[in-house]
Write a protein that binds this DNA or RNA. Structure first.
Lengths: 207, 207
DNA sequence: GTCTATACGGCGATAGAC
DNA sequence: GTCTATCGCCGTATAGAC
């Protein structure tokens, strides 16, 4: 007997998961392309092929939906980055090289971006847009990202000790800016270089 | 006789310049804070203290107004950057150092950002937002910025010759990402560092 | 050049039948 | 859980008086 049969859905797995997922995926895609204000709830539900009212039923306000889209992938991603950094430090016996620390920061991005789930590319693109918008920083960004960033900066101090405190933060800032622009996926590099570069080869820059 | 005289509105200075300026300044400020879709024409004209209809009378559509805001400062800024780069190359007799090329790229930003006209900071913030939005790249960005970027990349080749072509473009890409995030003015670095860094000290990172 | 008035459509969100 | 219908509001843009 397949566990597919239900009555009022007794022990089954999907409570209403399919619809929720469709909405989240559509929202992720459209928010990433046009930003929070550039998309309407109606466009999202149209893309998902469901009714407008369902978005509100499942997620509340448009703003809540946006936050939910961000949080969906954040936890897994941050755990992975934490693990990579811990591995990097442990493998070096507590004194990692600068290059290794940077790679531990960057690699989880590159791997997710290469994965078969295209949604990760979309998510990173959304992060890039959100990153230059002070509006979401306090409530979403800081809560989810700061713990890992602090761990990265601690690792930087292990790799290159004895530098004035603020320089570590600026180093993070520049690395972050460069990485984020890469995933913003503007196509600008492709056009500018007349085809010499392709933003799809985002790994080439980190050789 | 100056060719200034018209017919109606005889010798006076302000044709309608004052109102146009007020609208442009208000639009620059609000677009920089909330992006194109996050602002309404009504909010802009309210901020400027003029009537809604005037924005359309002077600038046409909201989209046209946005483009005009970008273009207003672009020309002067790009000319200045061109001059700085030309000076850098000439002073080194055609073989500039890498550091000098990068400084020639960055300095015009820092100087304008420090200037008494606060509008330049606002403009750079607006650029940062627009930079991660593919939407405006073709029509505004490429036309105004690409010529200078090509000159920068040519200078890079003088400073560090013999590198595979695409690496020059990636180098520009990373520098651009770092610089742009600096002027996005998200306040994130301030919060993250608990006051050790201030984004107002944007020059500290380029020491 | 400037403002009043308004057209017309789409917005986020909800109530309630099924 | 899902859809139909709708509320009340605000968006961009324009016509026309002054």
């Amino acid at each position: 007997m397949a566990p597919k049969e239900k009555k009022s859905r007794p022990v089954g797995r999907p409570p209403a998961t399919a619809t929720r997922k469709r909405i989240l995926n559509a929202a992720e895609k459209l928010f990433a392309e046009r930003g929070f204000d550039g998309v309407t709830v109606r466009q999202i539900t149209a893309e998902a092929g469901v009714d407008t009212a369902l978005a509100h039923h499942h997620f509340g306000s448009k703003r809540d939906l946006f936050a939910r889209v961000l949080l969906r992938r954040a936890e897994a991603h941050m755990e992975e980055r934490d693990a990579a950094m811990a591995r990097c430090i442990a493998a070096a016996g507590g004194k990692p090289g600068l290059r290794d620390v940077i790679l531990a920061y960057v690699q989880p991005y590159l791997e997710r971006a290469r994965s078969s789930d295209k949604g990760w590319r979309t998510y990173f693109k959304l992060l890039a847009k959100t990153n230059t918008s002070p509006e979401w920083a306090p409530e979403v960004f800081s809560g989810q990202f700061d713990p890992f960033v602090r761990r990265f900066i601690d690792a930087l101090k292990l790799a290159v000790p004895g530098v004035p405190e603020e320089r570590y933060y600026w180093a993070y800032h520049y690395l972050s800016g460069a990485l984020v622009l890469t995933f913003a996926d503007t196509g600008r590099l492709d056009r500018l270089s007349g085809g010499v570069c392709s933003s799809a080869d985002f790994e080439k820059g980190f050789l």
